[in-house]
Amino acid sequence: MRRDADRLRIFAVMSERIFITGIGTGVGKTITAACVTEALCADYWKPVQTGLMEGTDTDTVLSLLSNGVSVCHPEAWRLEAPASPHLAARLEQTHIDTGRILQLADQYQPADRALVMEGAGGLMVPVNEEVFTLDLILALKARVLIVAQNYLGSINHAMLTARMLQHTGIPVIGWVFGGDYHTNEDDVVKWSGYPKAGRIPLTDKVDKAFIQQQAQLLTTSLHSLLA
């Protein structure tokens, strides 16, 4: 019986939908997504990519994975302007259909692995004229990993993010902190009530070896929090 229960817990972890959001822009969501994808041998998907001149996050994650199992699925929308999805779509006179995103999520969700999804910016970034990222997470029935860094104003951004998630009842796995350590992150964990899943330090060289190393450090924590 215990072995069967263990198998069920492992399956529950592996079939998760994990949504990577941030307390703002440029806080390290893509590197975190790569580490989490590597740690869980999960699939990766970024539904909407903006700012194509800077390259895509999907290409970045694909270049950093080593496990040979993960699949990086193509974006549903690829938009040129480095702006929020709704504005980038407006500039190209197109519309982001969140129904299509939900359909593709079902299509891409593996039966035996987690699906790691990366959003654009934070929770209140508009996906289209009516739907915010927060709404999309709810519709996807995903659990959230919040990525944060320490900077002037980061406590406010972190706690606003936590309060929005608490208000909507979205399940939160925990925090992943990046950059240099600061005691602020301990305060954010205490005040939010969400656990610390890990931290990813600054490095001059982000490569497969770095991602693999950080993934190994995250593995035990992620499996424990997802069980």
Rank of each mutant, 00 (worst) to 15 (best):
Q212T: 15
E54C: 05
D106N: 13
G99Q: 10
G169E: 00
L225W: 03
A162P: 01
E75S: 15
L40D: 04
L140T: 08
V36W: 11
A42D: 14
L64I: 05
G153W: 04
Q93W: 05
L136A: 03
L52E: 03
E118I: 07
D135K: 00
D204G: 15
L65A: 10
K141Q: 11
W77P: 02
V125C: 15
R2E: 09
G193N: 11
L91A: 12
D106V: 01
H223I: 00
E130T: 07
P201N: 07
G119P: 08
W175N: 04
G179D: 00
A142V: 00
I20C: 10
T98Y: 13
N128H: 11
G178M: 00
W45H: 04
L40Y: 03
A5L: 06
H182D: 08
T25A: 15
R163D: 15
R199F: 10
G193L: 10
R113G: 03
A88G: 12
M53R: 12
W175G: 00
L225V: 04
T183G: 09
I173V: 13
L140E: 12
A88D: 00
W45G: 08
A114H: 02
V69W: 03
Q103R: 12
Y108P: 12
L65K: 09
N150C: 08
F11W: 09
